[in-house]
Nucleic acid binder design. Structure first.
Length: 294
DNA sequence: ATCCAGGATAGCG
DNA sequence: CGCTATCATGGA
């Protein structure tokens, strides 16, 4: 059991158990392009998990929060999964090994479904800082103000909120050509035409085919939602960074592979946690593209 | 200024 | 089927 050593006002539990289960690099996890709204504080990050405002505090290679939020936080950060076990399934080639060594505590977050879908709809052809800016603008304008330990953080506006907006409301948040997709998706979810929660109980391929009905959702964004929202760890999003990396490292010298060649290679080569491996590779490659040229 | 960004899609040959 | 132009916006 955690010692419950206390920082600040609230009683807290240091979320720590056996190694491999609770180890986490909070900064890499929250700032690696899978989730976009956590704001740095002097000791960690403030933000929302769904409707609940949370202050996540770094405690060495682990995380601390208030005791009453421990279950919520453990679920969101996936702390009950053995990171050692997951990393142990990765191939042990030089680039994969370097990616793991670069951020050994990187984890995948279990995101609320609508928030995950909407955020990745806004991510198309945008840089990560801009995706964060859009997420925060939507929260500040249309979310709900909440407060945790002196920090004001905003919830993500639900589909039922965005569904009632005008296109101009979203354009004001700099969504550009993505605005109409977010609005249409919100209306499909709000009306019940698409039941995101129900997709938790169907096969990955069934869920994928339903997600494709949403405007603006293609293969890459569907894979992001399957991976970050539904914990389908074999889903392997291929964005511009991963595509370049695959071509340079794993398809070097070969005739130009097609996207489906890349997808099938990744599924076969990176194994049952291919999507998890992908996040390590993405974070490493994006931050080291110069140094990594072997 | 020119090119690029955690893409999707209609329209072409 | 595979390729291309285009979409809106800001950063490098």
């Amino acid at each position: 059991m955690g010692s419950g050593a206390s920082i600040g006002l609230a009683p807290e539990s240091s979320i720590q158990r056996e190694q491999g289960r609770d180890v986490i690099d909070l900064t890499a996890t929250l700032h690696s392009g899978q989730v976009f709204h956590w704001l740095p504080t002097p000791v960690g990050f403030a933000g929302c998990i769904g409707e609940i405002p949370i202050h996540l505090k770094k405690r060495g290679a682990q995380v601390a929060t208030t005791r009453k939020r421990e279950i919520l936080v453990r679920g969101y950060l996936g702390l009950d999964r053995s990171l050692e076990g997951i990393i142990g399934t990765f191939p042990a080639d030089p680039v994969m090994s370097a990616a793991v060594a670069f951020c050994p505590g990187l984890r995948l977050v279990e995101q609320p479904l609508w928030e995950c879908l909407a955020t990745f709809l806004t991510s198309a052809l945008k840089q990560i800082p801009q995706i964060s800016a859009i997420s925060l603008a939507l929260r500040n304008r249309f979310g709900r103000s909440t407060r945790v330990e002196g920090f004001e953080v905003f919830t993500y506006p639900g589909a039922e909120v965005i569904a009632k907006l005008e296109l101009a409301d979203l354009l004001a948040c700099k969504l550009g050509f993505r605005a109409k997709n977010v609005l249409a998706a919100a209306r499909m979810v709000d009306s019940g035409e698409i039941d995101l929660a129900a997709l938790r109980n169907v096969s990955t391929e069934e869920a994928r085919s339903v997600l494709y009905r949403l405007p603006g959702v293609g293969e890459k964004i569907a894979n992001c939602v399957l991976l970050f929202g539904y914990q389908r760890f074999q889903a392997f999003p291929i964005d511009v960074w991963i595509e370049r990396m695959l071509r340079e490292i794993y398809f070097a010298g070969r005739a130009k592979p097609k996207m489906q060649d890349l997808q099938s290679f990744a599924a076969e080569y990176f194994g049952p946690f291919a999507g998890y491996a992908q996040q390590y590779l993405f974070h490493y490659w994006r931050l080291n593209r110069r140094a990594a040229k072997l």
